[in-house]
Amino acid sequence: MEELFWVLLIGAAVLWTAVIGAAVYAQKRQVDPSLERQARWFIIWGGAVIPTLLVGGLLAWGMVILRDITSDTGDLTVRVDGERWWWRVTYEGPEGDVVTANEIRIPVGQTALFRLTADDVIHSFWVPALGGKMDMIPGRETTLALTPQEVGNWGGLCAEFCGGAHALMRFDAIVMEPGDFEAWLAAEAAPAQVSEDDPGFAVFQEEGCGACHAVRGTDAAGPVGPDLTHVAAREKLGAGVYEMTPQNMALWITETHEMKPDIDMPPYPDLDGARLDALVAFLMSLDHAE
């Protein structure tokens, strides 16, 4: 991708200089009728034949690049479904699907194939630093293959206006060493460790959070909102928007629509005191087992 940038930049600089140079030369030079034939050939080659070949060549090259990023093979397949206004993420792991949300992790140097869909409106999946951007269209599957070269956290976002909280529809795209990635995926695949008498989990059930959210390993299996099995293992809260801290978690529950307008989750302003603390503690405990 970077190579493409340099080729285009240098190519454009050369062409620009040549065209402006020719214009200046033509201005300076006396009219010489005997050169008319030559001039015509110059126009035909410089104005028609060479541009056609160049554009044809660039078109072909562009398509080769596009073919690579839309290819349908990869070392790893990740399905991402665009929802209003968050991301449902499913890794096709060695031992079956691993469902998570709002964070993408992929191993460095390997090609990750993203199979993209959308729930009800069009979104667009974009990690600028990794290149390529692909629309997510309801009723269709689009693909995007990314091969990250450097370890790091490269932010991603929705790049197609999709309604109220579009600007807050982000995610962390974290590129890891392959070994770290394997460990992370295994931890993510494991069910949550929730003890029967966890007071926070009791609040979670009483308030009906489980109707929308799934916590694998418990009987909460709601499909409406993000999977919360390992929510505290994510770097950010609310689709890449807030730091994952107990304070933000509490605000997310009580002042939901101040944190993120329009979203499909109802606020729980009446939760406070010990019940809220217990719920937040429970959610923050949904981390990876050490």
Binding site: T52, G56, L59, A60, M63, V64, L66, R67, T70
Partner: peptide, 13 residues
């Protein structure tokens, strides 16, 4: 030339 450009994507995808 235009026809070649139209048909070209068929060879790449």
């Amino acid at each position: 030339v235009a026809i070649v450009f139209t048909a070209l994507p068929g060879f790449f995808f």
